[in-house]
Each structure stands twice: as C-alpha cells, then as structure tokens.
Design a protein around this nucleic acid. Structure first.
Length: 664
DNA sequence: CTTTTCACAGTCGCGCGGATGGGA
DNA sequence: TCCCATCCGCGCGACTGTGAAAAG
C-alpha cells in the first residue's frame, strides 16, 4: 500500500526528537550521558537483571558501529580462538574494535526495563536475554560525536516533519534531506541524552512498551559473520537480507508510524583489502540524501503492526542522491561506508500526525547484526555466496541448482541454498505461528520435490552427525528464535538498549502439518521468498518422523563432516544457552524442547574451524560444493532446517504466542 | 589500481485472461 | 443459462549477481 494512498492528507511525522538537537550530547563518548547498559541476564531472572555484565554503549546509541566491538570483545574475548570473519578486518582494527559476532550469541543481555517487565515476559512469548551488543559513540568530524539524538534539527525546522511529510511519503522522503550535515554525522541512538523519547511512560494510555523481534536474525547473523555487504545502485537495490520485524507490546488501537532509518555505524571509510575489511580514512560526513524509509503501511494501528511481520523487503538502497523523487522510497548511502539500520516506531494520531505533546511515544530499536557496508560491487566472495544461496532472485547463479532438483533423492544431499531463505526470511518460527497463511501463499508455487527437499534438509541437522551448527539449528534454536529489542529509553535514567530474544520455537511448533493457512490480510512484500517451502512441506503432511529424515540425510551429506563456517554458530550458541535458561523459566507447559539441550557445544567447534578457511577464501569466486566457498551452504541448510523443524515441534508455547497475535 | 556503471541471462512475483466448476 | 468463484497458464516487469568496460 502506498503511503500516499493511506494518507491523503495525513502526515507522517518523524519523532519530534528527530529534529531536536540534543544539547546534552557531549562531543566525546560520554558514557555518563548516553550510556546503554547491557546487562547479562539469566533468562530466569531477566526481569531483575541481576549480576549484570555491563556493556557500554555510549550514546545510548543503539547503533552498533564497529566500535561496538569494544563491548563485544569485552564481554568475551573469543576464548575459543575463533577468528572472526576475515571480512570484518578486525585485525586491522584497533583492538577495541573487534567485532566478535559470537558474542552476540553467547552473551545475552537483557536490558532491563525500568518500566516494565512487560506482559510479554510472562507470556508464552516471553523475552529472553539477547546476545550482547553494544553501541558506540563516534565523534563527528566537527567534534560532535555520534550523538544519540538525530541531528535533523539542524536541517529541519521543528515542525518540518509534520508539515513536510504531510503530503505523503514522497514529501517525506524528498522534502528533507535526512542525511547528516556537517557535524551531524553518525547520529546515534536517540535514546539517551537526546530529545527522543523512545520509551513511553508506563501508565500512559498509549504508552505501552514495545518489543521487537528481528525475524530473520539467523540469516543476518550469517551475513554478519562475514561483514554484511549491501549493493547500492543508481536505480536502487533491495537489501538482502531485508529487515523484518515482529512487534509486540503496542497499544492495539493506537496508531503508529513505523519506519527504518539507516545511519552511519562508524566514522570510517572502509575498503576490502587482503581479504578483510579495513578502515581507510574517515567517512564522508557530508553525505546528503534520504536516510529514512517509512513503511508503506504507515500509519496504522498497533493491532495491525503486531498482527504480522513487518517487512522492509522493498526498501531500496541507492548511491544516487537525487533518486528520491521517484515513486519508491530509497535510502541514499555512500559506498564503502558502514551503516546501521534502526527501526523507529512512533505513535501518531489517527491521521498520522505525531503527538507533539508527548515525546515518549517514539521507540527506536537497533540490531547490531543489521550492520552492513554499502558497496557497488561485492567484495567478499563469502558474502556473494551467501546472497546467492539465500536470495531467490539469485537462484540462477546457484551452481547446483539443477542437480539439486533433478537428482534422485538420495543424491540430493547437497545443501540447498534455496531452502534456507524460508526459514529466515519469512518463516522464522515466530513468523509461522503468526502467519500460517504463508504456506498457502508461497508454498504452492514451489515444485513439490523442492519443498520436500527442503524438508529433508531440515531433518539432518537435527541429527548430531552434522556440524555443530546444524545441530543447533535442528534444535530449533537458530531458526525459530525470536529476538527482541526493547526500545531505548531516553528518560533520565541511563538509556538501556534492550536486547533480548525469545527462544520460543513454539511458534513453529504451532503449525502442525495440517494447519490451515489464514488469509493474508495485507500484501506481503516478501512473497517471492521461497522460505515457505520448508513450511509447505511440513504443512503438506510431512508425516515422516524427524528421526527418519535424519537418518536419511545424515548418511548422504557430503558436507556434513566438514566444519563449515557456520553462520549459525552465534545463534545456536545463544539459543542453546537460552534454551537451558528457558527451561527453568519457561512459562509454557512445554517449556522448551528437550532437544535444545545439546545444541550449545557443537557450535564452538564450528566457529573455531572456519576461521582459517575464511581468511583464505576472500575474493574467491564461488566454487563447487566441495570448495570452501560452499561453506556457507551447509550452514544455510542448518538454518533452514531449524525453521522447518520448528514446525514439526509441537510447542504449546508457540501456540500461545500464536493465539496472542491472531486473536480477535 | 580501485571503484562504478552497464548490459546480460536467469529467476521470480504479479496481473491478466481463459477455462472450469458450482450454485441460482 | 447466467453468474460467480476458483484455478491455471502466460507474459511482463522486477530482481539478482556476473563480467566486462568505463571512470576516477
């Protein structure tokens, strides 16, 4: 739905805070003023947030730049000896800049919310600690740091957004240049010290606290391991993976604008050298252009946003500064710069006008794994391969595509890239629960064998024979887990970024094979993603027991023995831990699947093993399945499987979750 | 040498129109 | 027989990464 159509005369307003300069921001990292405190919490006592490991995210900034590595490294110095993806160029970075992705998964931080343990926590879809992430504050060229507040104020008049945006999206995007002007670079998380009120006050009628799941987090993590790259072109290129969220905790009747903003993640210019991403001078702070993409369904009610996955699959990235006068919203980025997408949820009036009287109606969410470097051509072949493996539009570049579908079942053991997307993009466990109709809409198009194949793939991973990652995936952790980020609050107290995940695979379990899909209420932007395949197969009546599949696959998987660079390790690890924790805390009758227990251990080996390979394969072209380049494939499968497997599980918890969202 | 741009081929989603089936 | 709903196939446009050429 086009925004214009929704808002004939309505206006989309950026949060007031967006254009409020925050005088409170210091020119340097000032933990005191804008610190995000990450607390490592036990799932069981997430609410209390006791014994917290503290991770600082300066600027209360949800933006996790490379600098966030500081925190990551701090929390865990990669004891496993895992070498991060060469792509990150971590070696070249200053010590503090290491970005250890594993930590995302291994360390969970739950930013306790002063206001509320949200109902969600008690809910079947209760929150779980989220993998560590940190925010980093960067100093702009002018000495201003990446302030937590958006500096649009320097560009926009206080009322600018309201009026300018009034006419609809086009104006919204073109009327103002959200690009940071000089001194306004690296807008950081608006939560702390800034004028942005990301956390509604408890008790206010509409001031419910929202939680956001990154639906396809496993996929994002997979890319993140290698330093995600996003192609930008003059005509605009879609993101892949794309941003996709589940939102909970909104007021059902209140109206919200939901939009994504992409901000510089760090002050550096990057280049891919020697198989690694290394910094190369300073970022261009004068970059102009739209940095915001308003979800086409904005504004809409909380019920609407919570009803289904909020996808930004049509968000396009461009390097053409003048490209935003078109019909499509495009976000203007600069090549070889690192960016951090952020999700904003702004409560507005029925006509889409922001209530200026209440600043506490803006909530911002940032997932560090969403960071990426904008490029005009892929630099890291690992990323290329991941894209090919997961992006349906790139199916034509998959080497084993034909054989995959034509070969006898026994031969179809090669990891199927096509399978993976299902689980991550559109069918994260939660997703299934909430959108069973996906299968109906998307699965039908898939060749039967394809679907079946996807299913098969999922099974093997459950088996312990495969790489650890796989195991985890099977356990249902990776694919199904949902990640929450609670809004950054800007109240006087130190802003805390709330990152937690809900490892409730139940969602997936919700969908027994025969579940009847619900009608799509709104067009889904991601319909073309084949993720549904796995789902389909299950729905189609995958009666075979999981064990049988495992047996079948495990024996034939050529790649199983090899410790592939697992994309999932992070998730899996986290999942495993979370699972354990969850069991103790589980509110649902089914608590957690017993299978979860074994997931954690496997992960490590994977991590440690892949590092060497990666460093050597930079810039290499994708190769035959046996090659290192295909490392991603196995992991992918794992993901897929996990997702599909989730379905198989019968999880009461998930049902609860499902009911929660789909209820009348 | 690095980065960007362009044309290319393959795949996918969507919309359209025709065919089919059921009910009035 | 007519109307309506559903299904199916086709074509178009959109989307993808590739690889070479152009630009800086």
């Amino acid at each position: 739905m086009q925004l214009e159509s929704i808002l004939p005369s309505a206006s989309i307003n950026l949060p007031k805070s967006f254009y409020n300069l925050s005088s409170s921001e210091s020119t340097t990292n000032s933990p005191a003023s804008t610190q995000i405190e990450f607390q490592d919490v036990d799932r069981t006592d997430s609410e209390q947030s006791n014994g917290p490991k503290k991770y600082l995210s300066s600027g209360g900034n949800a933006m996790m730049g490379e600098g966030e590595s500081d925190t990551f490294s701090g929390s865990k110095s990669a004891p496993d000896g895992r070498k991060g993806s060469p792509g990150t160029g971590e070696d070249d970075l200053s010590s503090g800049r290491r970005y250890n992705i594993d930590e995302l998964g291994t360390d969970r931080y739950f930013i306790s919310s002063p206001t509320q343990p949200g109902s969600d926590v008690a809910n079947p879809c209760s929150l779980f600690p989220y993998g560590g992430q940190t925010g980093t504050v960067y100093s702009g060229s002018n000495g201003s740091r990446y302030s937590t507040s958006l500096h649009y104020g320097s560009v926009l008049p206080p009322t600018g957004f309201s009026s300018a945006v009034c006419a609809g999206r086009s104006q919204f995007t073109t009327g103002y240049q959200f690009g940071q002007g000089p001194g306004c670079l690296y807008p950081s998380y608006p939560g702390a010290g800034a004028g942005l009120s990301s956390m509604p006050l408890p008790g206010t009628p509409t001031g419910t606290r929202a939680q956001v799941y990154l639906c396809n987090r496993p996929l994002w993590l997979k890319f993140h391991r290698h330093q995600t790259e996003m192609i930008i072109t003059k005509q605009g290129r879609r993101m892949f993976p794309f941003l996709s969220f589940n939102i909970t905790g909104l007021n059902l009747t209140a109206h919200y604008n939901v939009f994504v903003e992409i901000v510089l993640a760090d002050p550096n210019h990057w280049r891919f050298q020697g198989g690694k991403w290394v910094t190369c001078g300073k970022a261009d702070n004068n970059m102009q252009g739209n940095k915001v993409y308003v979800h086409p369904e904005s504004p809409n009610t909380g019920a609407h946003w919570m009803r289904q996955e909020i996808s930004f699959g049509k968000l396009k990235l461009t390097n053409n500064k003048g490209a935003n006068n078109n019909n499509t919203q495009m976000i203007v980025l600069q090549s070889l710069h690192k960016y951090q997408p952020r999700l904003h949820i702004v409560e507005v009036t029925e006509d889409g006008v922001e209530d200026m009287s209440n600043e506490a109606k803006t909530q911002t969410f940032t997932f560090p794994e969403n960071q990426f470097i904008a490029v005009t051509a892929y630099q890291n072949t690992d990323i290329t391969q991941l894209k090919i493996d997961h992006n349906p539009f790139a199916k034509g570049f998959r080497d084993n595509y034909d054989s995959m579908y034509t070969a006898p079942e026994s031969d179809r053991l090669t990891p199927s890239p096509t399978d993976s997307p299902r689980s991550h993009q559109i069918v994260p466990g939660a997703r299934y629960a909430m959108q069973p109709f996906f299968q109906d809409q998307f699965v039908n198009n898939l060749p039967q064998n394809h679907r079946f194949y996807a299913s098969e793939r999922a099974v093997p991973q459950t088996n312990g024979l495969l790489s650890p990652q796989n195991e985890d995936a099977t356990a249902g952790s990776a694919g199904a887990q949902r990640w929450f980020v609670s809004p950054v609050q800007q109240t006087g107290a130190p802003t805390k970024l709330d990152l937690s995940y809900e490892s409730d695979y139940s969602a997936s379990g919700l969908l027994p094979y025969g579940i009847k899909p619900l009608p799509l209420q709104t067009p889904h932007a991601l319909g073309y993603y084949p993720d549904s395949a796995a789902f389909a197969s299950m729905a189609a009546g995958w009666s075979s027991s999981r064990s049988s599949y495992q047996r079948k696959v495990t024996t034939g998987l050529p790649w199983s023995p090899r410790p592939s660079p697992p994309a999932f390790a992070d998730d899996q690890i986290t999942a495993g831990k979370d699972k354990l924790a969850e069991e103790g805390q589980s509110t649902g009758p089914a608590g957690g699947a017993a299978s979860w227990v074994d997931t954690p251990h496997a992960l490590k080996s994977v991590d440690s093993g892949d590092s060497g390979v990666y460093s050597m394969v930079c810039k290499r072209r994708r190769l035959s399945p046996g090659g290192s380049s295909t490392d991603a494939s196995p992991t992918i499968k794992c993901e897929d499987l996990s997702s599909s497997e989730e379905y198989n599980k019968d999880n009461p918890k998930g049902m609860g979750y499902y009911a929660f969202y789909t209820g009348p």
